[in-house]
Amino acid sequence: MSVAEIQPPAGNGAGAAPVQSVDRALTILELLAHDGESSVTEIASGLGVHKSTAFRLLATLETHRLVEQVNDRGRYRLGVGNLRLAGATTARLDVVTEARPVSRQLATDTGETVNITVRSDTSALYLDQQAGSSALQSHNWVGQRIPLHATSNGKVLLSELSDEDLAAALPDLPRFTDRTITSRSRLKEELTEVRRIGYALAIDELENGLTAAAAPIRNHHGDIIASMSISGPTFRLDQERLADEVPKVVAAALEVSHRLGWGRRH
């Protein structure tokens, strides 16, 4: 991505011109938002400046935690400091970035498919997916939506909503199997239990033979902004297996929450 592809907004006053160093620093953030991660050389090329200039700009942004180095490989990506400045959209991007290595490890540890979802109006939206070694199929659910009331991810995302927000998120409760919760009072009882124990289960509620367990991902304020789950066939994720695997899901979601600034220890 080049500077020419990034068009700054027009100034508010006639003849208004951006301060060059500020303009370049903001362009670096745009470049990293577009490319994911870049080296100093790539950033300098994108800006059309010398490497030393790019390095000084990156060092300043790093001081404010707006960028960070990736595993000391000389490459940079957006840093967690952006969470203080960004809204929900940017938070979703950060969730995927921070959750992906944790999701991969969870998929390895459990052998099951791991999903990251967020609430999008009246559905849960898949942001990322990692297939475990035991996955029966490799269907990619990223970008697809699922019901909130019939899934473990959805229950987590609903669990701390006010009554008003809960009603708006669930205009109706369609039935998918004979185990789908279709009563609002029963669902509220379930959500109270999710808050108490810190995770949600959905056993044969969306599809017969499908079981999932999810735990909350929180932002630096402690708000639930996403959920992390494992899913697999009910015959494999029986009560005994769930007793072993659910703590791993909870721990993984907590790790992502810490990476996003919640309960961060300095």
Score class of each variant (00 low, 15 high):
210 L>N: 02
143 G>Y: 13
56 R>C: 00
215 A>Y: 12
145 R>W: 07
248 K>H: 14
109 D>F: 02
162 S>N: 01
71 N>L: 05
45 S>G: 14
191 L>F: 03
106 L>W: 02
144 Q>K: 11
264 R>L: 07
96 V>H: 08
252 A>R: 05
204 D>F: 02
155 K>W: 00
4 A>R: 15
261 G>C: 08
79 G>H: 06
67 V>I: 07
144 Q>A: 10
35 D>R: 12
62 E>V: 00
235 F>S: 11
70 V>W: 03
157 L>V: 09
199 Y>F: 15
81 G>K: 03
17 A>E: 10
69 Q>I: 01
232 G>Q: 04
169 A>F: 04
81 G>P: 08
56 R>K: 08
73 R>H: 11
16 A>W: 14
206 L>H: 15
12 N>K: 13
201 L>N: 09
186 R>L: 00
111 G>K: 03
10 A>Q: 14
133 S>W: 08
75 R>F: 04
212 A>G: 14
136 L>P: 12
158 L>S: 03
162 S>P: 01
216 P>T: 04
261 G>Q: 03
88 A>Y: 15
55 F>R: 07
187 L>I: 01
79 G>V: 06
41 T>A: 12
138 S>M: 15
120 S>I: 10
185 S>M: 03
178 D>W: 01
183 S>W: 06
200 A>D: 06
221 H>F: 12
263 G>A: 11
139 H>Q: 11
175 R>S: 10
89 T>M: 13
246 V>D: 01
40 V>E: 06
144 Q>C: 10
129 Q>P: 12
196 R>S: 10
57 L>C: 05
88 A>D: 15
253 A>F: 06
54 A>W: 00
197 I>A: 05
209 G>V: 06
192 T>N: 11
243 A>F: 02
66 L>Y: 14
32 L>V: 10
72 D>E: 13
2 S>H: 10
10 A>E: 12
244 D>V: 11
34 H>M: 07
206 L>V: 09
242 L>Q: 13
238 D>V: 08
76 Y>E: 00
252 A>T: 08
169 A>E: 09
148 L>Q: 01
175 R>G: 04
233 P>S: 13
169 A>M: 09
83 L>M: 12
80 V>S: 14
55 F>C: 00
168 A>L: 13
263 G>L: 10
6 I>H: 15
233 P>V: 11
111 G>C: 05
122 T>G: 05
27 T>A: 08
96 V>N: 11
195 R>I: 02
209 G>K: 09
90 T>M: 13
115 N>F: 04
25 A>S: 09
23 D>T: 05
81 G>I: 02
74 G>H: 02
16 A>I: 07
122 T>C: 07
100 R>L: 10
89 T>L: 15
